[in-house]
């Protein structure tokens, strides 16, 4: 706030910001609130309990779904983030940036049910083609390659998450000066060494953010996953299935709240650590910034 700002306008801006944050967080906070209610969702009486959290690990369906989701998140992250990183590097070096950015961001603008359905049809046809090919050769090796499965869900989620990872990495890459790579090359480093020693340490915040973002996206995703997953369930598909059929169980609320707690704790820790580190670095810089001769 500067000296000429209206104090009431300043307070109004902060109130507005608080309102936005509350709007965003209220549903999550409400789920957390219910997860501690012994009487569950919609009950007249609120009785605090930790029981639902204790029951999470006895719910085989939820634990199985969580395991599949974590596995999916891990595989998608390991594949999508390096692909997005390479794409961002190519994009930065490209002369014509419009075409690659259009191609990379296009999946973001296709509605999830349309993209999911398109992939479903594509994989089904591909599966038929591979079965036919196997029949022609007389082997059944290809029969299950593109049957709806972990593989098809992974491909669908990679297509979904790459644009987000690309954008997140590109933002941190924007601050990186390519002269530093050239300087490393001039010092004798090959392309990979220059990337690993010089560029990566400076963009790693973006890469790790892209990893966190990808994991959260995989946890959140329902439409594409439910269309492409085949025979297993993920955390979101279980929750939505419960909501639509029997209503969410107490341990489902507890699991949702736990995942939210963990996500908020991780993101919060990253922000706090970054702030503390920045403050510490500027304190060191201020301390060293005694008059020096050029």
């Amino acid at each position: 706030m500067n000296d000429y700002d209206n104090i009431w306008l300043h307070k109004l801006k902060w109130s507005y910001l608080l309102l936005v944050v509350l709007t965003l967080m209220t549903p999550v906070i409400y789920v957390m609130y219910i997860s501690f209610n012994a009487n569950g969702f919609g009950a007249n009486e609120y009785a605090f309990t930790m029981e639902w959290y204790g029951l999470i690990f006895s719910d085989a369906l939820l634990i199985g779904a969580l395991r599949w989701t974590l596995m999916l998140a891990l595989v998608v992250t390991v594949i999508a983030v390096p692909m997005a990183l390479l794409a961002a590097k190519y994009y930065k070096a490209a002369d014509n940036k419009l075409f690659p950015v259009f191609l990379l961001l296009a999946p973001l603008f296709v509605p999830p049910d349309i993209l999911g359905s398109a992939l479903l049809v594509f994989f089904k046809n591909l599966n038929f083609a591979f079965i036919w090919l196997g029949d022609q050769v007389g082997i059944s090796l290809f029969d299950s390659w593109f049957r709806l499965s972990f593989l098809t869900a992974t491909i669908g989620l990679i297509i979904y998450t790459i644009p987000y990872s690309f954008v997140v990495i590109l933002i941190t890459m924007g601050r990186y000066r390519p002269e530093q790579t050239e300087a490393a090359r001039a010092c004798g480093a090959n392309g990979w060494r220059a990337f690993w020693d010089i560029e990566f340490p400076q963009i790693q915040a973006g890469v790790f953010s892209a990893c966190a973002f990808t994991i959260i996206l995989v946890f959140n995703e329902y439409t594409r996953t439910s269309l492409l997953k085949g025979g297993f369930d993920t955390f979101t598909t279980v929750l939505i299935s419960q909501m639509l059929n029997t209503g969410m169980s107490g341990q489902s609320y507890a699991m949702s709240a736990l995942v939210s707690f963990i996500a908020i704790a991780i993101i919060g820790s990253i922000i706090i650590l970054t702030m503390l580190r920045t403050e510490s670095l500027s304190r060191i810089a201020r301390a060293k910034a005694d008059p020096v001769t050029s």
């Binding site: 000066r177 002269e179 300087a183 090959n190 020693d197």
Partner: peptide, 20 residues
């Protein structure tokens, strides 16, 4: 030959020190 294989090294106009 790429830059790292040549008997040359280079000083750039600016921004070329490794900030980390």
């Amino acid at each position: 030959l790429p830059p790292d294989k040549r008997p040359t090294t280079m000083v750039f106009q600016a921004y070329a020190l490794f900030p980390h």
